[in-house]
């Protein structure tokens, strides 16, 4: 025999249904930043800042082709930006701070979205086949981690010179040229790998950012092509100096 449960009384006036339970009151969302869409916006905005930095950084790097002095001047100019209104390295430091915050926020949002996604699918598929660009989730998450690891190395190498043959007290151009000498081919390789990751990350990230901000409504195809083109330019632009140095430029 099955169990019985009774609902509603047997007389004419019946208790009203659970009125206080319109599920439209979400359990907890923690405001804009707590919402998945909010986090995506954070990713998009911080991503955009980082892309802006990358573009400038790439252009700066290309100055090496105009000669070591031009490059050093540029590095110097960065540090004296805004002088004499503000002291040496102020603007740069502010920019670095913004960049740092962006990286941190970007990573925070990425991690919390990934965890959210993990909770949304506690039982994995036995078989799962991608029907779209299946690599994107992996490239975005693991690619992002790769980029982060690379950044650490990169800063140690070219900013602090810790792992650079020329050490900290050298000119940026020297460090760079010394860093990419042919016998240090593996350094160049690290850069190449990292940049391919960056390129893939941006290829998806750029149009994804537009989509997240709601600007991709009718132009998805164009945006995707543009994102691909921009990523390619950035990758090639970055790779030009190290490769050139490796094959003998700057000697």
């Amino acid at each position: 025999m099955t169990a019985t449960i009774e609902r509603g009384s047997a007389t004419a006036p019946v208790t009203s249904p659970a009125k206080a339970s319109p599920p439209s009151t979400p359990k907890k969302t923690g405001g804009f930043l707590g919402s998945s869409n909010g986090k995506k916006v954070v990713m998009a905005v911080t991503g955009a800042i980082m892309v802006g930095f990358l573009a400038l950084h790439m252009l700066g790097n290309l100055k090496i082709f105009l000669g070591n002095d031009s490059f050093n001047e540029y590095a110097h100019a960065l540090r004296t930006l805004g002088e004499p209104l503000v002291p040496y390295r102020t603007v740069l430091t502010v920019l670095e701070a913004i960049l740092l915050i962006s990286v941190v926020l970007h990573m925070w949002a990425a991690i919390s979205l990934a965890r959210r996604a993990g909770r949304a699918r506690p039982v994995k598929y036995v078989a799962k086949k991608s029907q779209a660009q299946g690599y994107t989730t992996h490239i975005m998450r693991w690619g992002g981690v790769t980029i982060a690891l690379y950044l650490v190395w990169h800063l140690l190498d070219l900013t602090f010179g810790v792992v650079n043959p020329k050490g900290f007290d050298s000119s940026p151009a020297d460090r760079m040229i010394a860093g990419f000498q042919p016998e240090r081919w593996w350094v160049t390789l690290i850069y190449v790998i990292a940049l391919v990751m960056v390129g893939l990350h941006l290829r998806h990230g750029l149009w994804s950012g537009f989509q997240t901000l709601g600007w991709a409504k009718d132009r998805r195809r164009t945006l995707k092509l543009a994102a691909g083109a921009v990523s390619a330019v950035i990758v090639l632009g970055f790779l030009a100096p190290p490769i050139a140095i490796m094959i003998g430029f700057g000697k």
């Binding site: 099955t2 019985t4 019946v14």
Partner: peptide, 19 residues
């Protein structure tokens, strides 16, 4: 004045009354 229904997930037999 009402209906008897079966909850198709649990199999429970329920009574619902109405006007």
């Amino acid at each position: 004045r009402g209906i008897i229904v079966r909850d198709m997930v649990t199999g429970e037999i329920e009574r619902h009354m109405a006007d």
